[in-house]
Design a binder for these strands. Structure first.
Length: 810
RNA sequence: GCCGAGGUGGCGGAAUGGCAGACGCGUCGGUCUCAAAAACCGAUGAGGGCAACCUCGUGCGGGUUCGACUCCCGCUCUCGGCACCA
């Protein structure tokens, strides 16, 4: 049965352009977006679950009268295509990608997911990446793309550099068992740090994002407030070391300084007798991998330089050390060590016998020796004119004093680093830059885009036909940039391209983008909580600043769906536990599969796939089919529960409209399905109780079919046609209007009043809704069981919650 | 270590101060059948009782409240994120 009706309706929807979005519709717009996938050829019901959620919402919003934009596309550049190509001996990454896209597209259509395929974008196609290049030039023009030599993260397996966000615990995000190496290379960066403050502050507006994601982004940006202070170097007139501290109140407690091994002043402050040891230490630190160096488990190491600095607040001479627990990439690459009030400095001081001086006294403390660093707030002591101030006021005063003396200043730092976008790969978007001996770095002019990837699959740096060019400025021989861009650049703006996917003059038409943006609902995996979502927010702000976009935030409401597991592991073809949409549809049809995917558990939670659970949904659909189309086949049963009560049926229908509508809108699909099942059960009870098939019954049938449509679109469309309401000649259920309900009908006229004695349920009685406390009390006291529980005493206190409960306390 | 989410029947889960376990799976019993499957009907948290009913029950220990799965404090376990960021 599903095998017949499902393809039939899928064809009709496409022919009718049901999900084609009109740019000129007078209806309010709704932009429903799912994260575009990497076409890995591994589509499972796990991925499908995500797309079904988006589809349910799109279908609902259409019926509610919105002009819905529900597009789809492919994040099609990237390493797996190259790796697969290599594995399969000479197949081109493009061939592999295109094949996978075709396959995935067929499967998406098969489960009845409707997209506006006219707007499909594919990031590896020249008509898309041309505009990624264009945007690079815009960033370059605005001073947001720059080239710099820097120590970078290098994945030895992928043979490319990685962004900070792609390094997890010192290992490559794609290869959890491969340690990332450090290399010094000239690379392209996007200056995302310029937007750190705005990316942080605007998180507050995103109140419809999961709290978790906002916290993760906040931590990633890592704002801290403090001061930069200059410590003069003893014996080197005019030379000083700048440090950053978040605790200016502890300045008097600094008993030594620490430079990062890569700090430029290390050589200068090192004395002759320490030189050999310092050089050896610095050399060793350089060679260590990130993971060795960042391990907090490891004991801290360091060496004295023999040099001294002057603490500017008290004129004390303190030794300068070099240690790799100080990072050159954060703050100024140098710290003042305050062992009494910093755990790391404390550990280091203990190990090397350096002095510890307490300058913050915790409230009510004696003067006993410190066993650990005290990092909390307190009162300043041993701090000259600042003694007696609390930490917070003290910090402010110290900063004020430093600024007055010109030896320090207030400073805000971020953990966020600039985004390294260069990748040494073939299958990515070319960076449109030319290197000319005379003119240096020259951007390819906008009108000469795109810089096309060569057909031949080999590293761009090994392909002179690609990199040999002429300088766009002077016409001399020049060399093209052979790095490609991180694929996260491609995905940072694809949601804008959907607004005008065929625009041949610009990345997107600002007018259309402003019409559709922001995305009303964005659905995807939580693994993108930082990377993709932070980069897309950054792009949106840059484009706003360039006057191309009105909005400053791309995604209004974000939802992270859970993953589907099987045998305790995330489902995937490579893990061997995947169930493909093909198999699912073959088994019981697309509708049963869709509904089961929604019913299996809360949408945000990971769920365990269970083949037998599908049967319950199939049974439910059979029951609905019978109720709607063959109600006469349901026999009246003696002793049926609800006795064919027409008023009750009407009420249940109204209540179900409310619950299911609310649940769909809040993406609580699992409970929406449960309520639909309840309605079907009620309808069955009604018939079995001898209920008449009058207008009330017809209304129930029509409502059930409509409410079912977003999740089970084929079967409901078929039933709609057979009811004589729609079909190819009369209009589709997909175009019908969403049912409304009358609150008065939904209201329960009679409620079950729970009677408690001392908070324990002693009786339940059916009463009219809206009783006064006196009436309720009288009814409650009429109960034998309540009187028994009260044991003769009079209630001294009565709590009455209208239409719910009355609690008698003796 | 820090931050965040969570712990409810045999299982997936529902209920966010007011009837714990909706809905479904599974199991058991029944109808139909020569039989089985399917379908349909019923039962199904634990303990006690012939029964009406009673007692206990939402990770553990306290607290607030007439009343707590729900709010507060402490602990514990699981999962996710961050982790020498000065």
């Amino acid at each position: 049965m599903p095998q017949e009706i499902e393809p039939k309706w899928q064809k009709i929807w496409v022919d009718r352009g049901v999900m084609d979005a009109s740019d000129k519709s007078p209806k309010p717009k709704y932009y429903d977006l799912v994260m575009y996938p990497y076409p890995s050829g591994d589509l499972t019901v796990g991925h499908a679950r995500n797309y079904v959620m988006g589809d349910v919402l799109a279908r609902l919003k259409r019926m509610q009268g919105y002009e819905v934009l529900h597009p789809f596309g492919w994040d099609a550049f990237g390493l797996p295509a190259e790796n697969a190509a290599m594995k399969r001996g000479g197949i081109h990454p493009k061939t592999w990608t295109v094949e996978n896209i075709a396959k995935a597209k067929r499967e998406l259509k098969m489960i009845g997911i409707l997209y506006d395929w006219d707007r499909e974008v594919t990031s590896c196609m020249p008509d898309y990446y041309r505009w990624t290049e264009w945007l690079f030039l815009l960033f370059y023009e605005r001073g947001l793309a720059y080239r710099a030599m820097s120590p970078v993260n290098w994945c030895p397996v992928d043979k490319t550099v990685l962004a900070n966000e792609q390094v997890i615990n010192g290992r490559c995000w794609r290869h959890p068992d491969v340690e990332v190496e450090k290399r010094d290379l000239e690379q392209w960066f996007f200056k995302i740090t310029d937007y750190a403050e705005r990316l942080l502050n605007d998180l507050e507006q995103l109140d419809k994002w999961p709290h978790k994601v906002r916290v993760m982004q906040t931590n990633w940006i890592g704002r801290s407030e403090g001061a930069e202070v200059d410590f003069p170097v003893a014996g080197h007139e005019g030379e000083s070391i700048r440090i950053y501290t978040t605790r200016p109140d502890t300045l008097f407690g600094s008993t030594f300084m620490v430079l990062a091994p890569e700090h430029p002043l290390v050589e200068k402050v090192t004395t002759a007798e320490h030189r050999a040891r310092v050089r050896e230490y610095v050399e060793r630190a350089r060679k260590e991998t990130e993971i060795e160096r960042l391990s907090t488990e490891r004991e801290k190491t360091g060496v004295a330089t023999g040099g001294f600095a002057i603490n500017p607040v008290n004129g004390e001479k303190i030794p300068i050390w070099v240690a790799d627990y100080v990072l050159v990439t954060y703050g100024t690459g140098a710290i003042m060590a305050v062992p009494a009030h910093d755990e790391r400095d404390f550990e280091f001081a203990k190990r090397y016998g350096l002095p510890v001086r307490e300058v913050i006294a915790p409230a009510g403390s004696g003067g006993e020796e410190l066993r650990d660093a005290y990092i909390g707030p307190g009162v300043m002591v041993n701090s000259g004119q600042f003694d007696g101030l609390d930490s917070k006021t003290g910090s402010d005063r110290v900063i004020g004093w430093l600024e007055e003396k010109g030896i320090g200043k207030r400073s805000v730092k971020y953990r966020l680093r600039d985004w390294l976008i260069s990748r040494q790969r073939y299958w990515g978007c070319p960076i449109p830059i030319v290197y000319c001996e005379l003119d240096g770095i020259v951007p390819v002019p906008y009108d000469r885009l795109p810089v096309l990837l060569p057909e031949e699959y080999k590293p761009l740096a090994d392909n002179p036909d690609f990199w040999r060019t002429r300088c766009p400025r002077c016409g001399r021989d020049a060399r093209r940039e052979t790095d490609t861009m991180d694929t996260f650049v491609d995905s940072s703006w694809y949601f804008l391209r959907y607004a005008s996917p065929h625009d041949e003059n610009e990345p997107f038409d600002p007018e259309l983008a402003n019409h559709w943006m922001a995305v009303d609902q964005y659905t995807g995996g939580v693994e993108h909580a930082i990377l993709h979502l932070l980069y897309s927010r950054f792009f949106t702000k840059v484009l706003h600043d360039a006057g191309l976009l009105d909005v400053q935030e791309p995604f209004m409401r974000l939802f992270n769906q859970g993953m589907v597991k099987r045998f305790g592991q995330v489902m995937s073809k490579s893990a061997g536990n995947g169930v493909s949409p093909d198999e699912l549809v073959d088994k019981q049809g697309a509708d049963a599969g869709r509904i089961y995917e929604m019913f299996i558990g809360p949408p945000e939670e990971d769920v365990e796939w269970n083949d037998s659970g599908l049967n319950g949904v199939v049974k439910f659909l059979h029951r609905v089919w019978r109720l709607v189309l063959q109600p006469e086949s349901i026999e009246v049963t003696a002793g049926a529960r609800d006795g064919g009560d027409a008023v009750l049926l009407r009420r249940r229908v109204a209540q179900t409209i409310k619950k299911v509508t609310d649940d769909y809108e809040d993406l609580r699909f699992n409970t929406a399905v449960a309520y639909l099942m309840e309605l079907a059960n009620t309808m069955q009870d009604y018939l079995q109780g001898g209920g008449v098939r009058d207008e009330g019954w017809d209304a129930a049938v029509h409502t059930l079919v409509k409410l079912l449509n977003p999740i089970g679109p084929h079967i409901s469309e078929e039933m709609w046609e057979r009811l004589g309401e729609g079909g190819p000649d009369r209009g589709l259920l997909a175009d019908a209007t969403w049912p409304e309900f009358d609150a008065a009908v939904a209201a329960e006229p009679e409620v079950t009043l729970v009677v408690q004695v001392s908070g324990k349920v002693r009786d339940r009685m059916a009463v009219a809704a809206g009783l006064s406390e006196e009436q309720a009390l009288a009814i409650a006291m009429a109960s034998d069981r309540v009187r028994a529980a009260l044991n003769g005493s009079k209630p001294s206190k009565v709590i009455y919650v209208r239409d719910k409960l009355i609690n008698l306390v003796p």
